[in-house]
């Protein structure tokens, strides 16, 4: 699924990473706990999270996650967006809840990216 389609489905604002709007992701992972993101996600997964601090961007960077959606109207600050830009990470923000965001994307064909075995 293209990032620009994800942006449209979630009515999301693009906060940085415009050049990545035509990137394609095939899976998503939703969590507010970065410990779980570190333990359970694969690379190239879309990260949906309501945790909004610098460690969210650092965690994504460590895992080569290049696309983040902040849910529930969370708004990253300038320091977060600056780090995201430096690391080439695309950041979107939606007012939808985590459940609704994941549900919309799953219904549209995006699959779970975490290791749940």
């Amino acid at each position: 699924m293209l990032i620009r389609d994800i942006q449209a489905l979630l009515g999301a604002a693009l906060l940085c990473g415009e050049s990545r709007l035509d990137d394609e992701v095939t899976s998503g992972f939703g969590a507010d706990l970065m410990s779980d993101v570190l333990a359970f996600t694969d690379s190239d997964t879309l990260l949906l999270t309501g945790l909004c601090n610098l460690q969210t961007i650092r965690t994504a960077d460590m895992l080569d996650i290049s696309h983040i959606v902040f849910v529930r109207g969370k708004c990253p600050d300038d320091a977060m967006l600056q780090l995201a830009r430096e690391r080439g990470i695309c950041v979107l923000a939606t007012h939808y809840t985590m459940f609704k965001s994941c549900g919309l994307l799953f219904s549209a064909g995006l699959r779970g990216g975490g290791r749940d075995e």
Partner: peptide
Amino acid sequence: DLGFGAGMGLPNMKK
């Protein structure tokens, strides 16, 4: 509050 402290750190390091 920062999203850590879930008790997954050391097990994940080992993995």
